[in-house]
Each structure stands twice: as structure tokens, then as C-alpha cells.
Design a protein around this nucleic acid. Structure first.
Lengths: 156, 156
DNA sequence: AAATAAAACTTGCAAATTGCAAGTTTTATT
DNA sequence: AATAAAACTTGCAATTTGCAAGTTTTATTT
């Protein structure tokens, strides 16, 4: 585990993994504009390190040669259970913007949620599992759910 | 989750949490000598931060006034599922010293393992759930197991 | 009772890492 | 042909880390 913490034991790496895993972020630009305020040099550095450790890979956009897609590897997507438990913990113990119903659903259907996240990864389903849950309350948000359910709410 | 990563989004904090959770470490000295090579100023700083964020608390040793015991709070022990998934992931995808059978047991009995870790915390059972798995191979190690099982092996 | 040792920190300082602003390069678009 | 976008890179100041040595308080030893 010591090794693992050299992989993503910093302020940003796990956030990038989460953004790829459940928010559907793919490009440098998207991470940069995600609102988390990561500097571009650090972003480039973290993406490179995640590649070196085999958690992330890149592929060129066939339609736009300027663009590079970042994508989790299998090793990366296998962090889904860790990420899920972390999201659940954070929702319970920290100020978080994630709507209560979404979290309840995730807690009650852990295995199915993990499977759905993996499925979207496998099939390159571009629909993000979770939206960014911003502070613009009251907005109805459809949340990626496993079997015909939905919720409103906000915040991560 | 952004907030959470300010809590333990660094090289050491999660390691300290793991050491408290499954290795039974309690004192400054034990962390210091755990072989992970954390500098004492950083150790003091991380323990203080974990206290501030309510993940760790301290209590004086009634028998030796020099000693301070560090202990996870409820918020801290509730990180057990995250830690378990991380250990499982690390064992599968990184070089790790944890014996195969131990990991198989953890994977096959996730809920029971989490419950046992919490039980030891609740009852202040001093027996660590996992030994440090050093590189002295061949040694038989009894591993904290849920229902009459045991294993040998080594490494984290 | 005095000297020594342990445990838990703290301090000073050099080295490494981060964050910010401003480039650079390559590939579209207008 | 000129302009714009996307993905980085560079330079530099500010913060954080790591290392070695020191301090403080409470046991233990002699």
C-alpha cells in the first residue's frame, strides 16, 4: 500500500481518477476547467505519473488531432470500489454536495453501482455516472442509476 | 470528496490511519519506528491535522505519563471499508508483501472483515488485525481472521 | 536524590514541490 | 493566410518536505 500511496497519495491524483471514473472527464481541458483549481503544470505532471503507474492511458481523438483522450486502464477502473467507499464516507462525514438519495442508493447497491461504473467504462458509454453537483441548488439533476431510479439534489 | 482529500490526500496520512486501524499502532514512537521513514516533524504535523479533522483523538497513558495514545475516532474507523478496498486493490495491482491467502480471505469476507476491524476498535482489543508482513520470508504469521482461519506469508 | 533515559515533540535550514502567469507547439477553423 | 484551440512547458516565487539536532516532561537507575 505504501507503493499505492506514491501513486495517488497527493491532493490531485484521486480527484482526477474520480473525474474520469464517474464524471466522464476525458480531456486535459475538462480537468483544467473542472473548477477544482489545479494548475496546468501539475495537471500535466499528475496525468503523466498516473500513466507511468499504469492507471491511466491516452489515445488520440480520431476526429480532432489536437485532442488527447485520457482513459482509465483496467487497473484504474478497478479502483471503483475504493472510490465508491470513499464517496460514501465523505458524504456521511464531510460537507458534501451530493444529494442524500443518491448516496442512499449507492450505499444500498454497492455491488450494482460498481458494476455499472465498470460497464460504462468497458462499453465507453459517455454518460457520466454522477454530475458535478454544483451549488446551484434546486436544479433537478438526473443521476446515473443502475435500475430505473432517479433523484434530484446537488453538490459533490 | 475534495474536502476529504485535504484530510488525507498526502503521502502519509492514509498510512497512519492504516497503521492505527489494522496494525494496532498507538504511540508516536511506533509510527516513527514503523520503518516507513516518516520524519518526526511531519509525523507530528499529520497527527495534529488528523485530530483537527476529527479522524484521530488522543488520550494519555494512565500508567506512563510520557506516553500519549493516538486512537481513531468513529469517523476514523468508518474509513475501514475504504481501507479494505484499497488493501485489496494494492494486493492485486501492486507489488505487495501481503500473503495471498490473507488477501483471498479479505476479498471473500469483506463485510465480516470490516466488522471485525470495527469490533477490535470498539472493544479496544489490542491484537492487531494484520502484522507488518516483513521481508523475512518463510516465517509463519498468524493473521487476525474472522472465524477460525489462519495463514502464513509476508509483506504488507 | 541525582543522573540518565524515554517519549513526544519543536526548531532551523537546505532541498524539493507547488502554484501562478506567461509562453510554445501542433492541429483545426475562419 | 490568419486566427483560434488544445495540450503542454517554462520561469520563478512561495510553500512544504526531509534531515539533524535540540527541548520538555515524565519515568528509571544508580
Amino acid at each position: 500500500m505504501n507503493v499505492s500511496l506514491e501513486r495517488f497519495g497527493d491532493r490531485w491524483s484521486l480527484l482526477l481518477i474520480r473525474d474520469m471514473m464517474v464524471r466522464g472527464y476525458k480531456t486535459f481541458k475538462e480537468f483544467q476547467e473542472s473548477g477544482e483549481g489545479i494548475a496546468t503544470n501539475i495537471l500535466a505532471n499528475r496525468l503523466a505519473r498516473l500513466q507511468e503507474s499504469g492507471i491511466v492511458m491516452t489515445e488520440p481523438d480520431p476526429e480532432d488531432g489536437r485532442r488527447v483522450y485520457y482513459r482509465l486502464t483496467e487497473k484504474g477502473i478497478e479502483l471503483a470500489p475504493v472510490m465508491l467507499e470513499l464517496l460514501i464516507w465523505a458524504a456521511r462525514w464531510e460537507e458534501t454536495a451530493a444529494p442524500c438519495e443518491v448516496m442512499q442508493h449507492m450505499e444500498a447497491n454497492r455491488a450494482a453501482v460498481v458494476e455499472e461504473v465498470k460497464r460504462r467504462w468497458r462499453e465507453r458509454d459517455p454518460v457520466p455516472f454522477l454530475p458535478p453537483f454544483n451549488e446551484n441548488a434546486g436544479n433537478e439533476v438526473k443521476v446515473g442509476v443502475v435500475k430505473k431510479r432517479s433523484s434530484k439534489g446537488e453538490t459533490e
